[in-house]
Simulated scan of single mutants.
Amino acid sequence: MSKKPFAVLLLSCLAVLSFNVSAAETSQPAASVTEQVQQVSGLINLNTADAATLEAELVGIGQVKAQAIVDHRNSNGPFASVDELLEVKGIGPATLEKNRAKLSVN
Rank of each mutant, 00 (worst) to 15 (best):
A80D: 15
N99M: 09
K65C: 02
V37C: 05
G42L: 00
K89A: 13
E57Q: 09
F6Q: 14
L17R: 12
A52G: 10
A66L: 03
V70R: 05
Q39N: 07
S18P: 05
T26Q: 14
A56F: 08
G42T: 05
E57A: 09
G77Q: 01
I69G: 00
I91Y: 02
N74G: 05
N76S: 06
A80W: 00
D83V: 10
T34M: 01
K65G: 02
I44R: 02
N106W: 04
Q63Y: 08
V40H: 02
N76G: 06
R100V: 10
A101F: 00
F79E: 02
V82T: 09
F79A: 04
K102S: 13
E57H: 05
Q67N: 07
G92N: 04
T34F: 00
L54M: 13
I61F: 04
G90E: 01
L17Q: 13
S18N: 14
N47C: 01
S104C: 09
K98R: 15
E87N: 14
E87L: 15
P93M: 11
V16H: 02
P5G: 10
Q67S: 09
E25N: 14
N76W: 03
N106Q: 11
F19A: 15
Q63H: 14
P78M: 06
A52L: 11
E87C: 08
G62P: 12
L85I: 03
V21N: 12
T34R: 06
S75I: 01
P5E: 03
E97G: 07
L14R: 07
L10K: 06
A66I: 01
D71M: 01
S104N: 13
Q38A: 07
S12Q: 09
F6W: 14
S32C: 05
K102T: 11
A101S: 12
S12W: 10
R100H: 12
L17C: 14
S32H: 01
V40P: 06
E35K: 05
E35V: 03
A7V: 12
N76C: 03
A56H: 08
L17N: 13
D83H: 04
N99H: 02
V59L: 12
S81G: 09
S75E: 15
T34V: 10
A101T: 07
H72D: 08
L103C: 04
G42W: 04
T53H: 02
V33L: 15
Q28D: 03
S12A: 15
R73M: 04
Q63V: 09
A30S: 11
A66V: 09
A68C: 06
K89I: 01
I61W: 00
V70W: 06
T53E: 03
A24N: 14
V8Y: 14
L103S: 04
S75W: 00
N20H: 09
K89P: 01
A94E: 15
S22D: 05
A15G: 11
P78T: 11
S22T: 03
A56C: 10
S81P: 10
S18V: 02
V88A: 00
V40I: 13
Q36A: 12
G62L: 06
